[in-house]
Design a protein around this nucleic acid. Sequence first.
RNA 1: UGGGGAGUAGUCUAGUGGCAGGACAUGCGGCUCUGGACCGUAGGGCGGAGGUUCGAAUCCUCCCUCCCCAGCCA
Length: 553
Amino acid sequence: MDQGKTDFIRETIKKDLKEGRYEKIHTRFPPEPNGYLHIGHAKAICLNFELADEFKGICNLRFDDTNPTKEEPEYVEAIKRDIAWLGFDWGLNEYYASDYFPKLYDFAVKLIKGGKAYVCDLDPAQIREYRGTLTSPGKESPYRERTVEENLRLFEDMRSGKFPDGSRVLRAKIDMASPNLNMRDPVMYRIMHQRHHRTKDKWCIYPTYDWAHGQSDSIEGISHSICTLEFEDHRPLYEWFLDQLKIHHPRQLEFARLNLTHTVMSKRMLKILVDEKYVNGWDDPRMPTLSGMRRRGYPPDAIRNFCSAIGLAKSESTIEIEYLEHFVREDLNRKAPRVMGVLNPLKVIIDNYPEEKDEELEAINNPEDLSAGTRKIPFSRVIYIEKEDFMEDPPKKFYRLAPGREVRLRYAYFIRCIGVKKDGNGNISELHCTYDPSTKGGDAPDGRKVRATLHWVSAKHSVGAELRLYDKLFTTEDLSKNDFKKSFNQKSLKINDLCRLEPSTREAEPGQIYQFERVGYFHVDPDTTTKGLVFNKTAGLKDQWAKIKRKNK
RNA sequence: UGGGGAGUAGUCUAGUGGCAGGACAUGCGGCUCUGGACCGUAGGGCGGAGGUUCGAAUCCUCCCUCCCCAGCCA
């Protein structure tokens, strides 16, 4: 829906509509199936699909599959899964640049016939040399003035496989002295005897991006072809092809790609992390890929809200990863059912609670959504609390449990610490407490207050699980100036298998997400089996105490 | 030193000649059976220098800084 956004792209579209340059808005999201989609792609996906929605147009999904050496069907499937997961539906509008290969070939013949393209026999090194430099013009290829007939014949021979890879290319005949390097007779076709994942062995020449992209846009009747800033230089070429061919002319618009702190956003680098086993696959929950975020537990709505909040501009920017996390928490706070789980258990024996007694206490499933109802949690004489919720010698602002101090066990009772037991090494091994039966449910009839409320689990009823705790992928904020492998955060994954969870989590199924009260959000990983629960920590809760501790250091 | 872009708080972003607004982050306070959530509040900004104008983030001039381009990648 139009939320009154006023970015430059929407302004341009409104103007184009008003002036009649286009009657219908038609956008496209054009991924190359050479890797998995990441959060940067999400920005483009949201933009293109939402634009189509706002202006009652259409958004195509088009695979830009023009380089068979890098592309695989696995990626096509992953890309479709991720876009659908984000909540966008391309319906029947699924296209492939490779479907246009015959048309593109005909277009090329048309350019050759018009004297606007030629077959060049220079090898790659020579082409580079002839291109000139940023400050000096290039030289014209000695093959530039071949006759139309010869070009036609050679181009046909290229297609029919008469030449080896790299021996010849088809080039546009534009201007070797152009200050824009893209206009210095760019390559349109290269010879690659390579099997394509869709066209199989039908072709041994493949179009380059510059040649394929604009013409594909045109064939699909795209009105606004939105891409990232680095293609700004290509726009004159994009337009040149369309003008020479005299075909439907979309408007290319460029916006700044998304950058995030503490992560990388290039498929090339992400692929290295996967291939060299820095992470466990494209969907590793530490990855900025959509599949990684899904596995981490990030809700698609959070990602969409984030994309909408970061805005759209032409200035290069880097968003703090914390901003993304904010939208994850915001969404999960409203939706995630609460549960209690102790990550680092400390045994507490409630001395005055009857040895064999068990009881069930009622707990609210989600204080932000009372319609989520309540559940029962078992209580008994021996419970676990979080190790860090007790201090023998508490500093000023620590108001959790301490010797002699009274705190509340959430939804249960007030307890007071009356004894601390230590092991041979002086580590606290268990606590002895008393409880006040009159505080059942968590309120004192005499109105007395406690400073802290702790989460807990009944020892004998609790269940174990494997928790996978994540931290930033990289220790450095800005990876553009650093060797990303050196900055890899070796502590980005920690496994906790000591935790004890309340028994209701036993029924957890992959894909479910909980808030472990006072700790964070946890998403049930697909690795969960009947033998054991596996959770990914999606995000921590904001932690005031951690902040105080940090400041005091 | 060619060409193409961009500079508004710590980070994003709004602004289109008329009081520089919002979000996140930060500080402080309130509330609370999650030190969560929520509510309130504070600090902090137009890259620089000139000019035009009653009035400039906005228009003009010059300067500075940053990003992209010399793949038969996209």
